[in-house]
Nucleic acid binder design. Sequence first.
RNA 1: CGGGGUGUGGCGCAGUUGGCUAGCGCACCAGUAUGGGGUACUGGGGGUCAUCGGUUCGAGUCCGGUCACCCCGACCA
Length: 560
Amino acid sequence: MKLSKMLFKSLRETPSDIELESHKIMIKSSLIHQAGSGIYSYLPLAWKSLRKIEQIIREEIDNVGGQELRMPVIQPKSLWDKSGRSISMGQELFNLNDRRQKPFVLAPTHEELLTSIVKEMIYSYKSLPQLIYQMQTKLRDEPRPRGGLLRVREFIMKDAYSFDLNKDGLDESYENLSNAYMNIYNRCGLEVIKIEADSGAIGGKDSHEFVAISDAGEDKIVICNNCNYSANSEKASFSKKQYTIDSNLENQEFPTPGIKTIASLCKFAKVESYQTIKAMFYNSKDELICAVIRGDYEINELKLARAIGDPNIKPASNELLKKHDIPAGSASPLGKSIKVIADDSLLKANNYIAGANKEGYHIKNVNIGEDFTASIIEDISQIPDNAQCSKCNKDLSFKKAIEVGHIFKLGTIYSEKFDANYLDINGKSKTIEMGCYGIGTGRLLAAVIEQNHDKNGPIFPKSISPYDLIISPIKYENKIIKEYSDKIYDLLKSNKFDIVLDDRKESPGVKFSDADLLGFPIRLIISEKLIEQNMIEIKLRNSEESIKIENKKLIDYLKK
RNA sequence: CGGGGUGUGGCGCAGUUGGCUAGCGCACCAGUAUGGGGUACUGGGGGUCAUCGGUUCGAGUCCGGUCACCCCGACCA
């Protein structure tokens, strides 16, 4: 490839509204072009790199038995009505109608369609397990696209789906994919850690995220440096302090005029926050829910939503509270016949102060199980900044990270909705166990650049670099230099190297800067002096030094 | 959806209290010299000033609406 003919234009100044390094680099080196908010073209350079990433993914997924197919982006909305996600995914779904006003969606993912395909094609245990995947464009009307390719509305994702006989089979498929994922990231030159994650709107049980540590990331993750426990902070558990004393005491109501917050209550009653109960009220399907937690912790609404089994909970309105006669500031579950979800921290202390459900009054020595009961008691707390590991009790640390892969054990939630069943060896109908596994390829590329760059541009790992190397001849217009450079170019091409020749009439400075901005691992420099000595200069992108070798030895050198 | 910001050639910017053919740098084209880290000089091409409406003799500039993009938050496989 001759650089003069490449769809490439290096920008000296980047658009002023760009913040992230990877985004800047991708714009400056013409990897991508923005068409709208969160909508990008992959220009030839990025596309070459993405195809290499796709090929690595393909090889690794095939290696664990994957079969590639391709499903449509545009799908009848009825599929999504069937799974319930036309509602649960809400605004994120791109909707449109055809000319007959029949509703369609632009697919944000493909569980629905593939499950319905499998339902039609799989009848027997003999056909299972299956691992199906594709590389396909996904569309999601994100509320806020950001950071170049990091969060976009149209993107390419490798999505794989496993179909197994039972839970053991699912566990095995999940493990296989998890291993394949680590291989993929290694081969792409990306440092990634696997963490426990929340499965969110997609549903399901176990879920892990693969994240690249980076300040550009949107995820906050928790890591234990001692025992390697790691999780998304949305889901992370931690060790809750134990404060239980002697025995439970008798209730005692006392006036607390104007006291509305835990902080003011502690000050007023001269107690620590762990001696109080915080009550929060939510609306789940128009039912009032009371979530209670020890005063020294905060409620994590994601965990709460999971505990209740309703992803769409929202804070209770004042009207709803009034209807149940609950006074804000002095509220608690005491004496109320409403559904109560308690954080397990409440079990680790006793004789709490809680609201009396009477304006301006609280009650001392409240105990869970005695004075009120909760229908669910589990961890619904937000992890605090100074938390300790739930496994080894050592301090946890927080990092920002880019989510570059997410895997889920779906179980039977989709197979049940789509009647994806099979007959087992005894002729009994069973439901297929499913898993799903996603990697966004554009985001992966952005993460690689985020982790591998310097002030001059990207430093592509060899495996996903758009080209193997660039030849930068100084004074290419000179006939001797041109002939020599062209000869090297042809030689390398015939040896199957994928190369770019900088044939432009530019000064050395411009050529070198652009070579750095292109980020290929190797740069060959050709100049008049070097030709006289039958030498050629090799500069690696990831090092400052360059070496000179005899031109005869070039191919051997590059091949090693 | 809430808060903040920005829209003037491809990119970065200037444009006074409204006043002449709307400027500058980079990039682009032609040329001369130069040739190891964005070289110098000369001459060119390219803009309905986001858009719609209003005020005015006159609007890039003042007023109002709309749109787009960016950032923070909410939200979110």
